[in-house]
Amino acid sequence: MEAKPETEKKEKNWEPKILAFLCRWCSYAGADLTGSSRISYPANVRILRVPCSGRVNPLFILKTLRSGMDGILVSGCHPGDCHYTAGNYNARRKFAILSRLLEYVGIDPRRVQFSWVSASERDKFAKVVSAVVADVKALGPNELFQLPDFGQMTKGPTSPDP
């Protein structure tokens, strides 16, 4: 009972955790430039460098959601600028289908976002990250994939009727 105000406070100060998959040639370099130019952007993103946006297997995104991250950003080079010529074109097709399917099963599209950010677009990177963070903050924590209380973790007939 005494713990309650504590948790409430915690919830008020809740900050979303966001995983950003950034391609090493454009978006990662863009993020680097944003930092070195001392442009501030929310500290909620954890950056994961990938060789190309085409490297981002949709399974990475599903698994990230399942591990309880509140939001995901995938960012790569603008169309035509891919270091490997067509990685981002191929990625774009996968992401188009993925984001529609995620929406169809009930994952708010604001949780999983995509962007093109070049190595020089330091302002755009800060803007994209801020927008994603604001969106995810508005949505609240990713409660769909919380770890259940282990004592309750039994599949049984008491689960509610769908």
Partner: peptide, 14 residues
Amino acid sequence: FRTYRQEDPQDFIR
């Protein structure tokens, strides 16, 4: 997923 077009839809990308 073995091909692409430059004008593929991308309205969902920021």
